[in-house]
């Protein structure tokens, strides 16, 4: 469990493994010295560009609903391009990612866990929003769900105090978030929502929840010129969610059609499991983010 969590976090956070890369680069790897510098340069550039900015599906260039056979084929094709035997030592980091992505996506259980963790699970695209996301559900699914806008939250812990089974404090981000939907009784929930001094706890539609929860997580930011890298989350998470959904719909219009047979009315056992996994992920996720922060701190100081 820990291993997989650690590697996922390594992937999700672009600079997570930099501590290691630093040392890798410093070390003269003379086995590959006889290669032409021309090849090395372009490879390095490519490696930097593609480095970990993508999720496993994008990395392998497959759609989220692809069959194992397609994944295998894509993996082989990419290996032929990036494997250190062919691309030289610069292919090392990328091949590590490919291997990790392949391992996760080829195993049904790991893939489901991963899908849940990136907040855009296959179920999401199949049209049935069963409330999978960062928070898990206690009991049956309901039409409304609680959501904390992390941008507005001042970290007063008022909600955690009133409904400790539902809300948790995210120490790394300094804001509260929902761990378990309906973890406490209605009354406690009402009190905690009302007690929030900045009114950042919202009742939202269940369908909106995964997107919101996905977007409220700080995401690694791509560098554009001087506005390089870093982390960001949308200023207005609700507006961002709306455009994000629209974008997704456009992007996956074709997939929607292909996927209609995936559509299910009730929550399938697989989804139920994913929901459970998602809650596990939160517990571990808290830790993994700390790990990333520690690593980033390392890197700054290096």
């Amino acid at each position: 469990m820990l291993v997989s969590v650690a590697s996922i976090c390594q992937f999700r956070v672009p600079k997570a493994s930099h501590v290691y890369e630093h040392s890798t680069v410093k070390k003269p790897i003379w086995r590959w010295r006889q290669r032409s510098p021309v090849i090395r340069c372009c490879n390095r550039k490519e490696a930097v560009e593609t480095k970990m900015e993508k999720n496993y599906y994008e990395l392998l260039g497959v759609s989220v609903d692809s069959e194992p056979l397609e994944i295998k084929e894509a993996y082989r094709k990419l290996q032929k391009k990036y494997h250190p035997d062919i691309a030289g030592q610069e292919g090392h980091e990328h091949t590590l990612l490919l291997n990790e992505a392949y391992k996760v996506l080829m195993r049904e259980d790991l893939r489901r866990k991963y899908d849940a963790s990136i907040g855009q699970m296959r179920a999401f695209f199949s049209g049935d929003m069963s409330g999978l996301g960062y928070s898990s559900w206690d009991g049956s699914l309901r039409s409304k769900a609680l959501f904390v806008d992390g941008n507005a939250c001042i970290g007063c812990r008022e909600c955690v105090h009133h409904a400790s089974n539902t809300f948790v404090m995210d120490e790394a981000l300094g804001c509260a978030r929902v761990k378990v939907q309906y973890g406490d009784d209605e009354q406690k929930l009402e009190v905690s929502v009302d007690s929030c001094p900045v009114n950042c706890i919202y009742w939202v539609d269940r369908e909106e929840l995964p997107v919101l929860e996905f977007l409220v997580q700080p995401q690694p930011k791509e560098g554009y010129g001087v506005f390089g890298g870093g982390w960001e989350r949308p200023k207005n998470v609700f507006a961002a969610a709306e455009s994000f959904s629209k974008q997704l719909k456009n992007q996956t219009a074709n997939q929607h059609q292909r996927n209609t047979h995936f559509t299910v009315e009730e929550e399938t056992p697989a989804q139920a499991e994913a929901r459970v996994n998602a809650s596990k992920k939160i517990n571990a996720g808290r830790f993994s983010r700390l790990w990333d922060w520690a690593k980033r701190a390392f890197q700054k100081d290096m």
Binding site: V3, Y20, L96, N99
Partner: peptide, 10 residues
């Protein structure tokens, strides 16, 4: 484990 490989443990 497929090579190249990188794993960590706490």
């Amino acid at each position: 484990t497929t090579m190249p490989a990188r794993r960590e443990l706490l």
